[in-house]
Design a protein around this nucleic acid. Sequence first.
DNA 1: CTTGACCTTGACGTGACGTCAACGTCTTTA
DNA 2: TAAAGACGTTGACGTCACGTCAAGGTCAAG
Lengths: 253, 253
Amino acid sequence: MRIGELAALLGVSTRMVRHYHHQGVLPEPPRLANGYREYGMRDAIALARVRRLVALGLSLDEARDVIADDRSRELPEILAEIDADLARQEEEIRARRRRLAEVLRRAEAGTLGPEDTASPDLLAFLTTVDLPASRAAAWDRDLLLLMDSGAAAGDRRRAFRMLDSLAADPEVRAAGQEFYRRLDELADADPGDPRIGPLAESLAEYSRRHLLPGDGPGRPGWDPGLLEPFLDGLAPAQAEVVRQAVRRLAGLA
Amino acid sequence: MRIGELAALLGVSTRMVRHYHHQGVLPEPPRLANGYREYGMRDAIALARVRRLVALGLSLDEARDVIADDRSRELPEILAEIDADLARQEEEIRARRRRLAEVLRRAEAGTLGPEDTASPDLLAFLTTVDLPASRAAAWDRDLLLLMDSGAAAGDRRRAFRMLDSLAADPEVRAAGQEFYRRLDELADADPGDPRIGPLAESLAEYSRRHLLPGDGPGRPGWDPGLLEPFLDGLAPAQAEVVRQAVRRLAGLA
DNA sequence: CTTGACCTTGACGTGACGTCAACGTCTTTA
DNA sequence: TAAAGACGTTGACGTCACGTCAAGGTCAAG
């Protein structure tokens, strides 16, 4: 047999046969005078064995060891390892399909925004609070998405438990809507706008009641510079509201 | 932020961030005077979005299209395709694990030979017929393994149905055992050994009754050269038995 | 001044082949 | 007899999402 006949017999490509020669997993047969490889049934049988091992999940290196009767590792040991690996992959795929199904369900219901693929925790929260369609609120939503990606699962659950309990209070939610409405009015305002002070005070008061004590700025060691990156998506006057609110919370103004 | 801080914030490697820049899936941020990349929260948010999309199974190319709001293909369509792909992979993995479990079960029961990973059909057949521990029988077993690998599933089932029905007949099995015993005695015999003729006649008679008509040699167009490769693993006198049997079946001797 | 932690670009490795290039060999047909 | 077409040969590059060096520049601290 020449290489094409051998390959056809086994239903594989000639490239694959030559690859197996190169990898040493299949011995090189003798050559004819013209340089062509000449195969016999023994080679076909050997190739079939390699294919069976590869189909089970062995790498070519492992298959070579098994065929060479290398007793450094027994075949059952290798197979058990492969099975464990496959089990892990299977569970991974199922988890991904669960998340995909969730996303697809939302996609059918409505439209998919930048939050397309957030965690179930965050999706539930976003559905509950129904942030208004303002740019300031969109920025906050993006920050939540960022936290969602960066935080470990434990931290995430803790954070969303807190947020969910807040969102469960109708009074708090009404205050949030009102706050975003007034903040939106400052989208094109001057950083010296007189509406900034009162709004900052209201935000500080809100935080004192619902978020503090125990967390956030206001404690010694808090660096105001850490705040700036989080104001990046807000208009100047809006950012100033948050800065002044933080200063009030820190007792500096 | 510098690249290390950004990466730590998202829990990824700096290499990955640079890779995303190179692939155009994440925009290059401005540089500092020393050439360092300087990131803001917007970049972190963009990176988080990429990570979410990738975690769903999108390739970087697909993620780039989705982020660029390329409406050539809608996200749900891509996600549905990915889900179908994952479903296929999952079924593949399960099939492989089923076969692995079968092989491992046999490995625990006894020892694993070269037939280690044959198809269930062939394993069942080999268990039934219990080929004797002879080199000639081992060669036949190898040929069965070869057929097992090369044939399409339909052909395989058809062939094993025939073999199984043969093996179900105790008389046939006894004849097989007897045949292999006599064939083994010819392992070191001369190609002119007088025992060859009678054994060839008995093989021909066996074939006439159980395998023919309708298949195998004996019909016009049959090329005796096709037989030779399949005799490769037999001793000279043994091969001669098969050759003479085939000639008798073809009515040439 | 050194040490060490960070940053830069560029290039190679991973695994199991597919695909192409550039060429030689053999058979069949006009 | 020549040309076409189907085979064979080796070698090299592409796939995919990065990991891992190499060989340097930058900066803060001791």
